[in-house]
Computed example of a mutant assay.
Amino acid sequence: MIRAAALSLAIALAAPVAAQTAPDPASAARAAAQRLDEASRQLDRADSARNRVKALTETLRAFEDGLEAMRDGLRRAAIRERRLLAELQAREDEIARLLGVLQAMGQSPAPVLFLHPSGPTGTARSGMILADVAPALNARAEGLRAKLTEVRTLRALQETAADTLRQGLDGVQEARTALSQAVADRQPLPRRFTEDPVKTAILIASSETLEGFASGLSQIAQEESPGSLPDISHHKGALPMPVQGQLLRRAGEADAAGITRPGIVLATRPRALVTTPTAATIRYRGPLLEMGNVMILEPQSGTLFVLAGLDIVYGATGEVLPAGSPVGLMGGEEAETGAVITQSGEGAGNMRPETLYIEVRQDNQPVDPATWFAMQEG
């Protein structure tokens, strides 16, 4: 079912920009379609729960990218349609006069059309004027006809997008469910240490700030392997974001209440997949303070990636995750198909209502995440 939905989604993804000049959504759609096809083949070859986790993670990422491309295409189509309709409405009087002239010309016999009351000279002059005007009239008529055709095409596209969107949303939900099951079924990952639940509970109860909790994380570890973690400092500034989203606030920027934090805030779509940007050990996962569900990853000795605001978290404390592994899902509810179409048509609505807070700590001091992650505006 995932493959069938993927292929039907991929076929229609490039359509929203067929009548437009901007190629970006179509290119993104084609790339997502190729990734979906490859992910489907990985699923067929997967012979263990761990391999299925990897394949399903890629499938879910591809679905998210594909749906994002389709939403962008629908938004552009709706904006283009509104502009065309506004232009046609503004030229309504001109269109009416032009149609009237063309209709009159079409109904008059050719000999009568070219006669002029002043005689042969006037008839000759009127013929020359008409010869000059006719191509311009035909060009305007062709331009208006093309725009009306484009409006009809764009409207038909938006009306038929509902089925494609529904298949895509069903497919992404199926992939989420399958991923959660595969994570539950996989064999335990390698561990650097085991968690002491009593010490963890005491640390949570006694910590009033993230800094206080982070500084005490080493206290909850039992039988920690003495081996050092690999140095990933050469990846600074190039690590992928853990979730597909839009940069809402940079480090140190005040929120609506005037509060500043050392981390960044990403606006994400509901149920977006969160992954680890690099191989890392899970130092903590679960609720913390007033930050919702938190995932704290240790990619190298002395460095922590704090991801706060998740709804679902995967894995166990002490596990070593490969790069790109799923660590959780954002909260919220996916918008219904009709709501996506309506919001695309209106060009309004907050399509990224969830927020993920990302903080990076080195030697228990916060540093700007921009020094680690490849961040893009929008």
Score class of each variant (00 low, 15 high):
E64I: 00
I232E: 00
A134V: 11
P299H: 06
S207V: 00
P117W: 08
I358M: 14
A134E: 01
P197R: 03
P120N: 06
G100T: 09
S206N: 09
E253F: 11
G332N: 07
L7N: 01
L9N: 02
A156Y: 02
I2T: 07
T278H: 07
L84T: 09
R45P: 00
A46K: 02
V360T: 10
P322T: 05
R249S: 10
F373H: 02
I129E: 14
K54G: 03
D37F: 06
E253Q: 15
V172F: 03
T337D: 08
A267P: 04
A104N: 10
S301R: 11
N350V: 07
Q219T: 12
G331E: 09
T57R: 05
P190L: 06
T276M: 04
L189Y: 07
D255V: 02
L217M: 11
M351H: 05
P117F: 05
P277N: 10
R82F: 00
T260E: 15
A308R: 06
L13W: 01
Q89E: 15
R61D: 08
S108V: 15
P16W: 01
P353W: 01
L67I: 09
A272I: 01
S225A: 13
I264C: 10
G286H: 06
Q103G: 14
L60N: 02
G212H: 13
R83D: 15
R71C: 13
K54T: 13
L310C: 11
F305N: 03
T342D: 14
I79M: 11
G106P: 00
S325L: 00
T276G: 05
A14L: 04
L179N: 01
P326C: 08
Q167M: 10
I312M: 12
E81S: 11
S301M: 08
R285H: 03
E68H: 12
I341L: 15
F373Y: 03
E87T: 02
A280F: 02
L157F: 13
P240I: 06
G66V: 00
T121V: 15
G347N: 03
V313C: 14
Y314R: 04
A62P: 04
L36E: 06
G345N: 14
P109E: 12
A139T: 08
A77M: 05
R3P: 10
G332W: 09
L9R: 04
S233A: 07
V274T: 10
A110H: 08
R97K: 13
K236V: 00
P109S: 13
A348S: 13
